[in-house]
Every structure is written in C-alpha cells, then in structure tokens.
Design a protein around this nucleic acid. Sequence first.
DNA 1: ACCTGAACACCGTTCAAGT
DNA 2: ACCTGAACACCGTTCAAGT
Lengths: 230, 230
Amino acid sequence: MTKKSRNTPHSPQRREESLSRDRIIEASIALLDSSGESGLTFRTLSERLATGAGAIYWHVENKSDLLTAACDAIVARTMASCVAGATPQATIRTLALGMFDAIDAHPWVGSALTRVAGQLPMVRIVECLGQQVRALDVSDEDQWAAVSALLHYILGVAGQNAANTQFARTRGVDRADFLDAMATVWSQLDPNEYPFARSLAGQLRVHDDRVDFLAGIDLILSGIESSHGR
Amino acid sequence: MTKKSRNTPHSPQRREESLSRDRIIEASIALLDSSGESGLTFRTLSERLATGAGAIYWHVENKSDLLTAACDAIVARTMASCVAGATPQATIRTLALGMFDAIDAHPWVGSALTRVAGQLPMVRIVECLGQQVRALDVSDEDQWAAVSALLHYILGVAGQNAANTQFARTRGVDRADFLDAMATVWSQLDPNEYPFARSLAGQLRVHDDRVDFLAGIDLILSGIESSHGR
DNA sequence: ACCTGAACACCGTTCAAGT
DNA sequence: ACCTGAACACCGTTCAAGT
C-alpha cells in the first residue's frame, strides 16, 4: 500500500523485484491478513517472494522481528490517520476507535501487540495517547496512570478480539456464529455458581463490540476527569 | 499443590502414579513455571510423567486445551482466595491485585489468558467482577461496560507483564535489567517525534508495576462511580 | 553484498499395536 | 479402557556454497 524505495539506495538498476525489508514486511502482512497468524511461515513467505528461506534472514533478524515490523507498519499507519479532533477527549476516542478498526481488519495485530513489550509499535501508541492526556491538563505525576489505563484497556480488548477471530477461524466458523455459540454456553452455566455471567449471555448475543469498546474508553476518560482536582 | 483423586473413580487399586488429567495439568504448571511458555512440550511433559506422548492425548484434547486447563487451575485458585472485602471497591481491588500477583508468579498465565476467549478462566473472572459491580449499584445496562472495562484492563496489563518477563527470559537477563534497558532506549528517542514517551523514560526506571496497576483500577472505579447518576 | 537450498533440531499430532 | 512409541508433516534457523 505504501510506496517504498529508500531501502535499496545502493543498487543503481533498482529492479522492482529485488528483495528488501519492506517488500518482506508487505508480503508478511498480506499473508497474515489472508490466512491468519499461522499463515506466516518462512516457507510460504519465501515461496510468495520467489526466493529461499535464508534470503529473508539477511533482511530480517528472526520471526519475532518480522512480526513486530509487520505490526508496527499497521500501527504507524493507524496513528498517522488519527491526528485532528475537536477536544482531547474526542481525539482519544477516534484514536482508540482507529486501533479497534485496525485490529478488526488485521486480527493478528491484536495478538502481536501483546508480544512487542515496549518496542516501537507500543511507543507510538503511548506517544499519541500521552500528548492528548497532556492536553487534558492532567498533572505530571498522574499522566502515566491515565495513559497506562487507556493503553492497557486498548491492548486488552485487542487481545480478546484477536483471540475471538482466531478461535472462530480455527473452528472454521463465522465470528458471529462463534459468539453465538459462546452465548449459548454461558446461558447454560450453573445459575448458583455463575449468576452474573449467565445473565450476561443474552446481552452477549446482541451487543456491538465497537460500542462496548467505546463505552470503556468513556468510562476511563470520565475517571481521569473526576480525579482531576484530587 | 491441590490434592486430587476424583478423576479416577473406576480404578479400585488407585495407584498414586497412574496418569490422570489432573496430574498432567499439575505437571504442565510446574513445567511452565520453571521454564516458561516454551518449556511446555509434549515431549518434555511425557518424559516428566514417565509416559508416551500419545498417552497424554487420551486425557487431553490438544495443546490449546492443556494450556487453557493449566491457566484455569491458576485462575480458579486466585478467584477462590479473593472473597471477602469491606466494600465492593475494596473487593475489586484485592481481586485485581490477586490476578496481578498470580500472573507475576506464573507469567505464562498472562499470555494464556489472551488466548482463551470466553472459556472457563474468563468466565470465572467475569463472574467475580460482575458480582462486585452489581453490589456497586450500577444499573443493569451499565454493568457490562463496567465489568468489561475492568476485565480488559486487567487482561491488558497481564499480557504486557507476560511479554516483559518472556522478553527478558529470551534475552537471558533480569526483568529489572530489561526494563532498565527499555528506559534507556526510550530516553534516546527523538524529542521532536516522541516528546511524551521520552519524558516518561525516567519514570519508567523507578516505577512500581503493582502500584501503577492499582492506580489504573482506581481510575476505572472512579469512572464507574461518576457515571452513576447519568 | 546478497541469495540459494539442503540440513538440523526441533515441534504437535496420529495411530497401529500392545496390555 | 488405557498406554506405547515410532512415524508424519510440519516448523524456525543455520550455513556452506554460490553469484
């Protein structure tokens, strides 16, 4: 999707087909999108790129590095497309929704994010959230708590959504069918042991993930506001 | 740690050494605790249990099932040990801290939780949180939003903590050393592109994960309270 | 400098065969 | 009913050898 050429500065003929880190990442994303997390293999990838497995290792450290880079490409695009906003709150909301939609489109990003731990993709998200929290006039010592709450909530939802789609894919069913099956299981829980979860089953069937996600963001935002003057 | 015998009701001589689902799960937990996520292998497990790989498959569906069961054992114990509490808020806090400590002691639980999607371990947590949120007098239609925010926040932190320890283990360093190295990287970020993340680097070095975690819980709790009368 | 592809040391899972 | 262990179809990663 993004044009790239900067990575082969020293190859005067610049063949379009030459291998490069960016081309490898691009192909990885395509593979992950079309066949899920288990679809990314050095064998399928090298096949797709018409090269040997070893060639990829010249441009990429290992599989973890590759996955992080692929994840970062998506996160970078998402952060770039969520700039403006009337208020800091509104910007945080669109930013969070942007991540939600990105993970909906690329479920593997959700689980990749839970493995990158302090690397570039995470830094990008922290930075965007942090700038908005600052604009919210949160005191210096409370800023990290606010950003951390938003960040970890987003990561939590991301991980669950990724797991849901992954689970559904493994069983070869639709994501909606999977959630429906889950609701059925929940509705059959022992009413004495699991009264709350059981009562939730119906809601589970009609709920909108995206709306629920935003409700959580709003809850945290209102928590940030209310601990302002303390 | 827990005694078990119920799983072999039809074997009159009940040999202590006989294979059972519980013994397999127990051994898996020991393996995961001592050598991390990559330590759980059907080969090492069958070796440890002095049996063949195939024998394990008679008691367990597959590796995913095994990991879920191991995770559930830890979660069940944790939920069981967090009952009382002066107020619903206090109970939620101890419950959350209980999960934090459990994941600190068993880092693999953190990443396992991001893969179980609506299965037993998750139901247990939802149930415990839900009962407390109910006790908080949150209206029926807002209960799920409150529980979901708490749940996903906990899962997000769990995933990150698991990733941090996993990352540190792979690189063969202490978790503290790893966080210190991360702080150094963050402090060297471009001040124009990443002003917030950069300014956070110092805090990163002296912060207490557990305290930060609790601050996030309190933020969400105060958000729940403030949207009470809306 | 960059690429090839066979080889290595692993995996999870299956299954005929045993008791 | 429960267990054995060899076999299968994969993995990620390495590395001598090529250009």
